[in-house]
Nucleic acid binder design. Sequence first.
DNA 1: ACCTGAACACCGTTCAAGT
DNA 2: ACCTGAACACCGTTCAAGT
Lengths: 220, 220
Amino acid sequence: MSQSVPQRPRVGRPPRISREEVLAAARRIVEEGGVGSLTMRRLAAEVGSTPMALYHHVKDKEELLLLLLDDYAAGLARPALPEEPRERLVTAALAMHDALAGCPWVVEVLVADDLMSDAGLWYAEHIVEAAVACGLTPEQAVHAYRSVWYYTAGEIIIRAAGRRRAAEDRPTHRERVFADLDREALPRLASIGGRWTALTAEDTYRQGLEALVGGLLPRA
Amino acid sequence: MSQSVPQRPRVGRPPRISREEVLAAARRIVEEGGVGSLTMRRLAAEVGSTPMALYHHVKDKEELLLLLLDDYAAGLARPALPEEPRERLVTAALAMHDALAGCPWVVEVLVADDLMSDAGLWYAEHIVEAAVACGLTPEQAVHAYRSVWYYTAGEIIIRAAGRRRAAEDRPTHRERVFADLDREALPRLASIGGRWTALTAEDTYRQGLEALVGGLLPRA
DNA sequence: ACCTGAACACCGTTCAAGT
DNA sequence: ACCTGAACACCGTTCAAGT
């Protein structure tokens, strides 16, 4: 009677590390240095084990990244969305952007295996739904979602790369090029000159999003 | 008198491979398998030499990629642009997109080191110029250019990744997820179901671009 | 001047063996 | 059942030596 929940008898060597431990360590590494810095060997060192022990807890590196993704997605806020469909679309897109901006490494994984796991689909669902509510056909709504996704992913990827470049302090290729622009051939860029870097560092995601959505939806 | 152009006397061992040869081989590799498949060792094999011989012709792998980029950019068409500024903006953006779409590996390099070399700046110049001609301030025009660039780069990157995924034929994570969608939580996506893949495979770059540009520019 | 070979410090992953 | 060690097939790059 005392054994009413039969603990499936664990046999063999007791585990020294758990899947959760491995994932937690992977998360730490990836948050600090991006996906590029996550190696099985470094991860093993982080959990105080050998590279091969990891393969007992995850299938391979790809599965590890997908697990990390699910994990991050599961913790995302799902904000209340406004009644008005156009606002609803913009709010959902902004929430999607925020979710990614907080965690740029996610995008690298997303792009590689397209579309997030369940938690990420929540954004797609509401963007498509709001687009339909605005008067688009389901097909048009999917296309509209895609445009928003391209814009959003591009913004995240490019700005993340920019931050990475700023972190290494060596001058970038771009700066060298902008330093001596041909005033004849490229007058507008030349006249902007040094302000380019500051201007492109400004966050204009929302502006661009509103413009895009305004153009995608039928005139109110 | 016969030596009027003194051939700076070449001394030492005669070269077996040239920089051009190295670049041409690198281009072949990258066109076939993407940037990921370009390794110094494979490149050496391709030119029939050793990895270390390459370092005599290019500084390192990064320089190699930038040279490849310059090279590609130098060969790009610079289409005649229409008089009407809004059309001019759209045409320049489409040309930029075409230039990248023909060569998705370029985007990986671009994103990593931001902005292309001179030839690529041509697009930026004309987009910014056209935006100003449409009535934006130079600052607004740079922001508009950035939005177009985010959208364009995102489209190229995501679609390139999609093609790569389609090439390997194993079922993607996405397909597995879409196969069993929760009809309660994600009704719109569920009702689209199997059509999702076909819909997102359609090329809607131009549509999205027109929408974005329409939203970015002042009402005509 | 140009090229080679051996070496260093890395990768992800498989396989056979230990506890 | 879980972990280890050695090994395989890779990377980019440095360094000392050869022609």
